[in-house]
């Protein structure tokens, strides 16, 4: 494992998580969540949890995002906060 890489990715994860909650458009915030999920996936690969990372890639960045999109399609992108 490489400390610096770890450091940077974690930083990115925090930033994406924060902005996913901050953005005032739900579609963007879901995309950001997906990115967050992807960064998490990278961290886990880097820590040697390949299985979890694989699952995360398939689920967090894949299926889960698809679910979010599908729900968004049936609701609204508008948000007040």
């Amino acid at each position: 494992m490489i400390q610096e890489l770890n450091f940077i990715i974690l930083l990115f994860a925090v930033i994406t998580a924060f902005s996913a909650l901050k953005v005032k458009d739900l579609l963007s915030s879901i995309v950001l969540l997906s990115a967050f999920s992807f960064f998490m996936c990278l961290i886990w690969t880097e820590m040697g949890a390949v299985d979890v990372a694989f699952t995360e890639a398939a689920v967090g960045a894949g299926v889960s995002t698809a679910f979010f999109m599908a729900a968004l399609y049936n609701t609204t992108r508008r948000t007040k906060d």
């Binding site: 694989f54 699952t55 698809a66």
Partner: peptide, 28 residues
């Protein structure tokens, strides 16, 4: 992924997700 789950990362869950993703792709 399913078949190689025993010796490499992967397994039923991941395989299932990818399979589902393929159908989702079809739908999309």
């Amino acid at each position: 992924v399913y078949v190689h789950g025993h010796i490499s990362p992967g397994g039923g869950f991941q395989g299932g997700c990818i399979m589902a993703a393929s159908f989702i792709l079809l739908a999309v």
